[in-house]
């Protein structure tokens, strides 16, 4: 039985009243969720937001569409919570200085360009460019490219058409390329 099938089985158990089955789902997916959140909000807040993600998912479990993978649904919930969290942080309600902990934050793309273009430097340049995106664009990039969610799945979770998603992804790649100072060869999705 694959992970997706196990997820569907465990979700069904939780919906039937077996709350303990949810611990299995949390165990199975917490690593990826924490990793994703570290990218979006930094390590300091990732664990707390991961907890919130699983709580939010639990309360909304009857709205989960088992046609799509459970992990992708969790990642989208985590992304939305991260966007809200970053908005609150920008409003100054959270402690200052946390932004510095974000991956890529603090790295100056121009300075990085001046350094030798080793692999680590190139990755740092990309991280800096992604970190400069707004919350929605950043979440879309992480979900589509780093977490490799299927376009149809993403379009479903965002409540938009596949074509609308394609346009957003296209603009996002163009924006990143411009920030990195490169031309981009077109590709689908």
């Amino acid at each position: 039985m694959g992970t997706a099938d196990e997820d569907r089985r465990d979700v069904a158990r939780v919906l039937a009243g077996d709350a303990d089955a949810y611990a299995t789902l949390v165990d199975r997916h917490q690593g990826r969720i924490v990793s994703h959140l570290r990218r979006l909000v930094g390590a300091a807040d990732a664990d707390d937001l991961a907890q919130d993600t699983f709580l939010r998912a639990y309360q909304a479990l009857d709205r989960f569409d088992p046609t799509y993978p459970f992990r992708g649904w969790l990642l989208v919930i985590a992304s939305r919570l991260a966007a809200n969290h970053r908005a609150r942080r920008r409003e100054g309600r959270l402690a200052e200085g946390d932004e510095a902990a974000l991956p890529g934050r603090g790295a100056d793309p121009a300075q990085a360009c001046a350094e030798a273009d080793g692999e680590a430097t190139l990755r740092a340049r990309l991280d800096a460019a992604v970190a400069g995106l707004d919350a929605d664009a950043r979440a879309l990039y992480e979900l589509r490219f780093r977490q490799e969610l299927d376009p149809a799945e993403l379009a479903h979770h965002f409540g938009i058409t596949r074509n609308a998603l394609k346009v957003r992804v296209h603009r996002l790649r163009q924006l990143l390329a411009a920030r990195l100072g490169i031309d981009l060869t077109e590709r689908e999705d």
Partner: peptide
């Protein structure tokens, strides 16, 4: 390599 990294971070 940067083009590659954008699509496959």
């Amino acid at each position: 390599r940067l083009r590659q990294l954008i699509d496959h971070p």
